[in-house]
């Protein structure tokens, strides 16, 4: 699905991302963990062609993301608030995104159905603009919009941050069921080692822009991660 080759991003003399090779197969769920400044978000931005790599390239289904818009049709993403159009109501926003993917109003409603628990009655029919929602609820809107088109590839940056405990658990279940039902390839970064190991079958640790570990999730992964991050 995604192929990263010799990817380097450097600002003047500091290298923030340096990944010789990373292969993501279709249907994989990958958790990206690492401390602040490890380069997770920059890597995501390069995957989404929002930052120009200093060297190397990212290809999606064999086509370089920088040279084509094709990936936009099968990739859903939510990194931060700048992915939201915050002066719309959530309904308008979902409609806008749905329209871009050729979904009818009925489709949108149906696809938002699984989000009912996560939304907890606080998102739809609130007669508020997205900018007036709390950070946590904005995040829910962003995640739902990213998943709305049932993309083949879903990229989420810190989806569990700012969510209350119940919402975190609901989101975890939701992501797992989206993966099972539609075989979505997922790329999720998180500081919550517990959740990310439960959702993802493969964990990649990033440190100072480099991949230091790449492992399949087993029952020992959580302990291994905790050991790794204990300094």
């Amino acid at each position: 699905m995604i192929e990263v080759k010799d990817l380097v991003k450097a600002y003047s003399d500091t290298t923030v991302v340096n990944i010789p090779s990373l292969h993501i197969a279709a249907g994989e769920t990958i958790g990206l963990v690492g401390n602040n400044g490890a380069g997770k978000t920059t890597l995501f931005r390069m995957l989404l062609d929002l930052v120009r790599p200093t060297k190397g390239a990212v290809t999606s289904k064999g086509i370089a993301v920088a040279h084509s818009d094709a990936w936009k049709h099968y990739t859903g993403s939510h990194l931060d608030e700048s992915f939201l159009i915050d002066y719309l109501t959530p309904e308008e926003y979902f409609k806008f995104i749905g329209d871009l993917h050729g979904l009818s109003t009925g489709d949108i409603q149906e696809r938002l159905q699984p989000f009912t628990d996560l939304f907890n009655g606080e998102i739809l029919q609130q007669r508020k603009y997205i900018r007036d929602f709390s950070k946590g609820n904005q995040k829910k809107v962003g995640i739902a919009a990213a998943a709305l088109s049932h993309p083949e590839l879903l990229i989420l940056d810190e989806p569990f941050a700012n969510l209350d405990p119940s919402s975190q658990i609901r989101l975890k279940n939701l992501l797992r069921s989206l993966h099972e039902q539609y075989g979505m390839t997922m790329l999720i970064s998180s500081h919550d080692l517990n959740h990310v190991t439960e959702v993802c079958k493969r964990i990649v640790i990033l440190e100072k822009g480099q991949i230091v570990q790449d492992m399949q999730t087993t029952e020992n992964t959580l302990q291994a991660l905790e050991a790794y991050f204990t300094v």
Partner: peptide, 13 residues
Amino acid sequence: SAHYDALLTRPIT
């Protein structure tokens, strides 16, 4: 500017 990333990652040419 506040949602430029949103426009860039969506299928809009």
